[in-house]
Design a protein around this nucleic acid. Structure first.
Lengths: 342, 342
DNA sequence: CGGCGCTATCGAAACGTTTCGACTGGAACA
DNA sequence: TGTTCCAGTCGAAACGTTTCGATAGCGCCG
């Protein structure tokens, strides 16, 4: 079966009595082809079941019509948001009739540049972007097309989609303040994810500190992985800080928190309130239903791919910079328990 | 910058004073090249920063060195296992120095065949396989290389990696039986995922029924999505069946169950035991810690890609059929509460 | 010392597209 | 009636590899 030489445009051309170039033009529309001829060609293609050979196209035209998403892969720690972003990117990519290549993200830029320079992809999407990111510097310096899920400190000329973590944290803290909480903890992602300079971590912390100051609140900041052991740390903290009645959690850091609270016999939301900054698809799985600020991960993936592809197809297009916000959905946050103030 | 004509083997050949074909052979090793010449070529390549052009390679050699994973995409319902599987496949793919293309899974086979016939990928991985799956039939009929995450009814000549859901369900039910439970419910995935004929669903149900019979247990079978509304159904069931003290859950169906139990004031595990058949990465996020049977999703993805690529590189290799089992990890399952038997 | 079999190399022909320049025949214009 | 223009088509030259057949040089055997 498979060893039958596959059909080429030459076959289609012969079968419909035109030149190969005419077949090509009929397919691409880059030059006019009479309705009658196009019809004949189309019919021949369907009859014979022709599919243009992609590598040949790519070789000649210098465009692969593919983009590559550099994906942070980790065997054990689940980066759920990244996965949802990937789904979104996949949707957009296939809508634009592009292919999506997924590559393993590395810290250094050489693999990324290789993907571009070998002609495997026309552009790349980067995730887990740091405030200062050498991958970005390199791509920018070389003039390669790319877009970011996330953003750097300096985003001059760069296309990105990011979630406004600063706004989210501010909103969360204000919400808790208004409920009456006076001591709040921020569970931020550990540097094992994205590194020390990881944008969301840095920005969340800054926004947290400034909100505390503004509202004259007591607050603590915990860096927190999701591995089982990490929950001990949270537990210790809660024991040490009995006045702390609420938390803002980023991504899946809600998990060790809920585990620790349960082991301390503190109920959510009666004894402790949580605002989780997290994608809705994950929040839906959590019991009790948490108050959340929805991080629209799917949309971010969609847009990240879209703004990249648009720029690929239109040289003139200026970079898009999108900063998304998520709604606060109040579910199980409550005023703090009345304490015996004696 | 980017408009500088990129380097080709011709440049390398000139620069090191050999023929283009020699450069190619030095790179591929398909014919002997003297150590000295190879050295010179290598040096030239590094000096100039040469990267072979992938589409050209693919065009001439008829191999893209890419595989495509057909990924079931859904905006709202999170198919977490699929994502973990993808990660695993990515790891294996990059280890073998292949590229991973991700495409949106469709019910009909034409898109899959297109990916192969346009030369974008050398083989494909299919997920969410049904007992009778027309995609599989088509690929097999056409003699295309592929592997399955999952399996069909008839797997003659097919490479697959599957999880042994039958064993897992049997193990789970026996575990609960031994703890003393006498009425158990199986929360199976709704047909919105994978369709009516979805392998894991069908096999789990069959194994459940046979375990019930074997142990003379009362049992119920619920098809259960993860959307918020679905939890009502679970709640209704629990109210209707007060003697039911334990559940076996597949994938994320634990979520509506935990929510319903909480709203009924029934504690896990004191009042109700759960055995979740689920990937450990997800189980780690759940409070209370559930007794699980670990579905090794990452490993499945790894192996699925590996057995496909191995067959691609070695025509003689017979298909691999792997059926994985997961360990039972007892965490929060308990004997049923003593009921007033009056 | 003629011939054989290696190893290492070369040149040229693919692979299946896209794209460029050139060429038609007829419509539109003066 | 001649010129200009345009839609539609053709042929051929790329694109950057891989691969095939040929050959040069060399050691070795008989």
């Amino acid at each position: 079966m498979r060893r039958t030489r596959s059909l080429t445009m030459v076959d289609i051309a012969k079968h419909s009595g035109v030149a190969v170039s005419t077949v090509s033009y009929a397919l691409s529309g880059k030059r006019p082809v009479s309705a009658e001829t196009r019809e004949r060609i189309q019919q021949a293609m369907e009859e014979l079941g022709f599919r243009p050979h992609e590598p040949a196209r790519a070789l000649r035209s210098r465009f692969s019509r593919a983009i590559s998403l550099f994906f942070p892969t980790a065997r054990d720690e689940l980066q759920i948001e990244s996965h949802i972003i990937l789904s979104g990117a996949l949707e957009a990519t296939s809508e634009f009739d592009y292919s999506l290549l997924v590559s393993t993200a590395t810290h250094d830029p050489s693999g990324i540049v290789a993907t571009l320079e070998t002609g495997r992809a026309d552009g790349v999407i980067l995730m887990e972007v740091r405030m200062a990111d050498e991958r970005v510097d390199k791509l920018r310096a070389d003039g390669h097309p790319f877009s970011l899920i996330g953003r750097c400190e300096d985003n001059e000329g760069i296309s990105y989609v990011d979630f406004d973590f600063e706004d989210a944290v501010r909103t969360a803290v204000h919400h808790l303040y208004e409920l009456g909480h006076r001591h709040v903890v921020l569970l931020n992602r550990a540097p094992s994810i994205g590194g020390v300079d990881y944008g969301p971590t840095v920005r969340s912390q800054a926004a947290f500190q400034s909100a505390l100051k503004e509202l004259s609140l007591a607050g603590d900041h915990l860096l927190c992985g999701t591995s089982g052991a990490q929950y001990i740390e949270v537990l210790r903290f809660l024991e040490r800080a009995p006045t702390c009645t609420a938390a803002v959690t980023l991504s899946v850091t809600y998990a060790p928190l809920l585990a620790a609270l349960r082991d301390l016999g503190r109920r959510v939301p009666e004894d402790f309130s949580v605002v989780a900054i997290i994608a809705s698809q994950i929040a839906d799985l959590v019991t009790p239903p948490l108050t959340t600020i929805d991080m629209p991960a799917y949309e971010m993936g969609r847009l990240g791919a879209e703004i990249l592809i648009r720029r690929l197809t239109d040289d003139e297009l200026p970079p898009s910079q999108l900063l998304l916000r998520g709604p606060l959905q109040v579910r199980s946050s409550r005023p703090p328990p009345r304490r015996s103030r004696s």
